[in-house]
């Protein structure tokens, strides 16, 4: 499930937060994006994330009733989050 990437961007802001667009502006196609907390709400706004590799934290999805069945988003737990962080050459928490 976890493909190779350079930087892991951990994003916990909604798409209307300034940091959300800063994050997208600084991430490239070599990077992976992990949505946590209110960041998972980005999945309800179509195509805002482009063709990035996207993961989302399962507990935050469940809490907010966000469904990922139709998308390419990898739903992961905290264990998966740790694995992603260790795999990344760089981690940015937005």
């Amino acid at each position: 499930m976890m493909s190779d990437f350079h930087t892991l961007h951990i994003l916990n802001k909604t798409p209307d937060h300034p940091r959300f667009s800063e994050c997208l502006g600084m991430s490239s196609s070599d990077d992976a994006l992990l949505l946590t907390e209110n960041g998972v709400l980005a999945l309800t706004t179509s195509r805002v994330l482009g063709d990035r590799t996207v993961y989302a934290l399962k507990s935050d999805l469940t809490a907010r009733a966000i469904d990922t069945h139709q998308s390419n988003v990898g739903a992961i737990d905290y264990q998966g989050m740790v694995e992603l962080s260790l795999k990344a050459k760089r981690v940015i928490c937005w």
Partner: peptide
Amino acid sequence: NADMIGRYQNVLF
């Protein structure tokens, strides 16, 4: 700028 921030292995806002 982004280059400067990108030189760190861990960045936290």
